[in-house]
């Protein structure tokens, strides 16, 4: 076996096992860490396909930023993962049957024959100094500028939607407005109000009221 093939199988075995552990791990922190492992191996496979830009972005953005943020969220929020997983085993037989049937049917129709090396030949290798990043940047900002801009709008919509559905201003919190506080004058701080004196009720009335209250 060629060295490259060995590396591919090595990386993909770890990738599949790590992905399985992501969904089966009981501890959410472990699941997140397995996801990091899965991403890292996927990055390795992309490197094998000589897509170095995607590999670097996967490691930098997904592992460096997204997963770290996700770990923070998992650790800081008190999410009951037991409750989230409720029904997993109950729905598994049904889900597995439907999913398995779909996969088998799709495999029967397609198999590997239409996407094998004879149907889709391997592209010619590029020179060692060929810059993947530069090429991607060139088409992204010229030919694909239109969908690129639209994709930016999709992100904007996601942001607006998320904020409009979740942002709540807390009415109950008591902010202090310093400018109002400083401008206060001593006449405004306390007002003396003249009230008529109240007489204490006779003891007999109170007892009668208590009796009526108790009877209710």
């Amino acid at each position: 076996m060629e060295f490259k093939t060995c590396v591919f199988y090595f990386l993909s075995t770890i990738l599949v096992l790590a992905a399985l552990r992501v969904v089966t791990a009981r501890n959410p922190v472990h699941a997140a860490l397995y996801l990091v492992l899965a991403f890292f191996n996927a990055g390795g496979i992309w490197l094998l396909l000589s897509a170095e830009f995607l590999a670097v972005v996967l490691v930098m953005v997904y592992i460096g930023a997204v997963m770290v943020l996700f770990l923070f969220v998992v650790m800081m929020l008190d999410i009951d993962f037991k409750k989230l997983r409720e029904g997993f085993w109950r729905y598994l037989p049904m889900g597995a049957t439907v999913g398995g049937l779909l996969a088998v049917e799709m495999a029967l129709v397609l198999g590997g024959r239409y996407f094998g090396l004879d149907a889709m030949p391997e592209p010619a290798a590029k020179a060692a100094d060929y810059s993947n990043t530069q090429e991607l940047g060139r088409v992204l900002y010229t030919e694909y500028a239109y969908p690129f801009e639209l994709a930016a709008f999709v992100l904007l919509i996601a942001m607006v939607a998320a904020v409009s559905l979740t942002l709540r201003r807390r009415r109950a919190s008591k902010y202090i407005a310093p400018e109002v506080q400083v401008a206060a004058r001593h006449e405004e701080r306390m007002t003396l109000v003249k009230m008529a004196a109240e007489k204490k009720k006779p003891a007999g009335d109170e007892a009668a009221e208590a009796g009526a209250g108790g009877g209710r």
Partner: peptide
């Protein structure tokens, strides 16, 4: 596809 996603995402919200 991107247009469809723009429409659908706004509608979900």
């Amino acid at each position: 596809y991107i247009g469809l996603e723009m429409m659908s995402l706004s509608l979900y919200a």
